[in-house]
Amino acid sequence: MSTLDLQAVGFRYEDMTMTFTLRVPAGGITALIGPSGAGKTTLLNLIAGFERPVSGRVLIDGVDMAGRAPADRPVTMLFQEHNLFPHLTAADNVGLGIHPGLRLAAPERARVDEALDEIGLAGLGRRLPGQLSGGERQRVALARSLVRRRPILLLDEPFAALGPGLRRDMLALVDRLRRAQGLTVLMVSHDPGDARRIAERTAFVHSGHILAEGPTADVLGPGATPEVADYLGEHV
């Protein structure tokens, strides 16, 4: 299990200056909520290494990630869409998580099948992404995160396009995988209900800053800050 520690991580996007300070304890699920354009995806990109901070530090288990390529960080990120290459089968898409050139020996092929089995897609490995449903495609991406064996999982709303029931199932699957693999999960969400259901902790992002962070019941509860209450639209 890994802890994630952002120490005054600064970033500029157009004329917006962002500074993130956040500590994510090991082994739990933390939800990131906030209005669109607040910087939630940027925050995940900074952790995954797709964006470079202009100041501050990103620490994982106390190790500074500065200068580390995305592939060398103990992190897997799932995007909202385009998580799979459309011309590769589900199994190959998972296999890329083991070797980025798909040079897989028999035991590694078996690991791919196991991972597909684990997320409930046994036997569908030879399908192309176009032949899978939206939920199944994101399951394949989850399977790949399993074979990569990275302790931190970042979810940038990969289930947002799914219906409420399916989304609940997927979050339950994430929770199950987290317990089984000892993952630390940071997930962006637009639905406070999701956060209440699955995340022990919640961070509220507002125009490039973390305005509130703590146990979900506190951050989203009756004692919420005015910005959070505004965002929720539940004036208490």
Partner: peptide
């Protein structure tokens, strides 16, 4: 090519040939 594909390639550690 969607931006996610480049990020994915980076996350998976693909070499230029890959």
């Amino acid at each position: 090519v969607p931006g996610e594909s480049w990020r994915l390639a980076a996350q998976l550690g693909m070499a230029p040939a890959q």
